[in-house]
Nucleic acid binder design. Structure first.
Lengths: 92, 92, 92, 92
DNA sequence: TTAAGCGATAGTTTCC
DNA sequence: GGAAACTATCGCTTAA
């Protein structure tokens, strides 16, 4: 019985942290909407803008993935041992 | 032709503002995930937690809606100007 | 009352079509797994393979999106009416 | 060095087989969406439909599991070889 | 102004 | 158990 109170407080704290973060997230989402509205007011086509944003994001993702695959290859080819890898192993 | 450069700069500025905001949003979303992970590490069931968060949000929405309806009634009845509102301002 | 039977039969038909399609989908997913297993048996690293597949897919998506954005621009700039569009229509 | 070319061709073949299968899978997924859309157009609630499909799938899984358990029992009791199983195969 | 299509996000499941 | 794929839900935007 004793722990229930503690667990409850802990849970409440977690929930409240989450709720505060969600509020912040919501606020930012609203900011984004505002920016689009403002841009629209300046004569820009928001549809086009959204696509630009999306494609630029894709570009970033792709670059990240390219690096990931390069890493993977280097490891697969064993071209990493003797250098950084030993360092990392030693550090574990 | 002259304005294209300006429009371009303006567009670029809008896009960059949006991208910065999206980054922030992403960061917060990650924070939320972390909190859930931490709670899980403390032995809480995240599925249940998510439900709690969802239900509490609904409650808030309902409450907001009820207040909106109340406002509507008060306005319809002309019971609001210079009356309740002043009260609320004074209370803040 | 009369329509219930009909609606029911219709619903049943829809459900069964869906279930058949889901079976097919499942079968193909299994095939894919088999191919990965076979490749693994031939000494390939499936992790790398999955990344290759993913990145190639991204490439395709990006290309599609680029085309979409080009279209959008052309329309936004009004460079399509009476011009390219008619060409395209004529070509179809 | 000589094998690299072969490995490469082999890899390419695997990748292409996978990509072809993924395309087929995608096509079927799209077909499923279409059926739902069509059903919606006929006045059915797709949310409910999805639930029906899910429940029926669970039922099948359960039934399969029950049969597996039954099989297990029958085998454990040695009541199976040359009996029911052959019947079923013949019936297919 | 609302319905509907679409995109994004959240959640579940599956694989490693 | 952690990551990735798939699914479902939600909210926005658009068109009627």
């Amino acid at each position: 019985m004793a722990d229930h109170g503690i667990a409850r407080d802990q849970l409440r704290a977690f929930i409240e942290r989450i709720e505060r973060l969600e509020e912040e997230k919501k606020a930012i989402a609203d900011d984004i909407k505002e920016v689009y509205a403002e841009a629209k007011g300046s004569g820009f086509d928001t549809k086009v803008m959204r696509q630009i944003v999306r494609i630029r994001k894709q570009d970033r993702n792709e670059r990240a993935e390219q690096e990931a695959i390069l890493d993977l290859y280097l490891h697969a080819l064993g071209m990493v041992e003797g250098g950084v890898a030993d360092y990392e192993e030693a550090a574990e």
